[in-house]
């Protein structure tokens, strides 16, 4: 193969690998969908994973949201100086936090925390034959490991994002009244100016899709880990990278479809 054809071969191979990856993921998700029938197995684990994925992730989500709200208020004020009434700080904080930064930053943070945790945990179980052990004990590993985590992600990401949105806006409000010489009525006036209830729905729909993406990608990479400790590390990294990318793709997708 010469220097001209090898890049073409590389592109071809990459395309085939990508297609095969989609195929494997499709087959994995089909297995997970089939396992939802085994509610007796996953039903009793959902609450545990909701606490683990959601409640334990809340502090980091709220921390990010609070500081994002502060920064948004200060940057809005800096941008608007003289040209736009200051109450538009409320518009910018509300809209950007609820529509974009709340769900996306929370999604990305949870991709790191939750996605990595799932991939590492399931990957370790794979390489130490614990998943095989589950099978020999009569458990469907999809029902035991994948379904409860995906359902927990689907339910808890929107809850985390709802709290993050609220804290982000509160962060912006506290900043506005303390550092920008704005009053609370002014901030609220801006917040309500272009607010539509659909904004909340949009934010939560995105959050649910991010939850689905992060948990299913984490489970997929964990499940397909082969080898030893290094392979677990590789799966964990891939899970975080791919789910972070998928969050951004889904973000654009929902903007095109719903706005």
């Amino acid at each position: 193969m010469n220097a001209w054809t090898s890049p073409i071969a590389w592109v071809g191979r990459s395309a085939l690998d990508t297609a095969a990856g989609f195929g494997r993921f499709g087959s994995f998700m089909t297995g997970a969908a089939r396992a939802t029938r085994d509610a007796r197995t996953w039903g009793q684990l959902v609450v545990f994973h909701m606490a683990k994925l959601g409640v334990e992730s809340l502090p980091i989500a709220l921390f990010i949201a609070a500081f994002t709200g502060i920064v948004m208020a200060l940057q809005a004020s800096y941008t608007f100086t003289g040209a736009v009434p200051l109450y538009f700080v409320g518009v910018l904080v509300g809209k950007t936090i609820i529509l974009e930064l709340g769900p996306v930053l929370t999604g990305l943070a949870l991709a790191g925390r939750v996605g990595a945790n799932i991939a590492a945990e399931i990957g370790s179980m794979r390489v130490t034959e614990q998943i095989d052990a589950l099978e020999t004990l009569g458990y469907d590993p999809f029902a035991y490991l994948v379904v409860p985590r995906v359902i927990a992600g689907l339910l808890m990401f929107p809850i985390c994002v709802a709290f993050a949105n609220a804290i982000g806006v509160v962060g912006g409000w506290i900043t506005a009244i303390n550092l920008l010489e704005m009053s609370t009525p002014e901030f609220i006036r801006g917040l309500r100016l272009f607010f539509r209830p659909f904004d909340i729905q949009y934010s939560l729909i995105k959050a649910a899709s991010f939850g689905l993406a992060v948990t299913s990608i984490g489970c997929f990479y964990g499940f397909n880990t082969t080898g030893g400790a290094a392979a677990v590390g590789r799966s964990t990294t891939q899970a975080v990278v791919v789910s972070s990318m998928l969050i951004l793709v889904l973000d654009a997708f929902w903007a095109i479809v719903l706005l």
Partner: peptide, 23 residues
């Protein structure tokens, strides 16, 4: 089938090389 498979596995105990205990 899936259910028959799990039923069969319940009749077979499996001791793994490194025990594969749920840690």
């Amino acid at each position: 089938e899936r259910d028959e498979l799990y039923d069969m596995r319940r009749r077979v105990g499996y001791v793994f090389q490194f025990a594969a205990l749920f840690d």
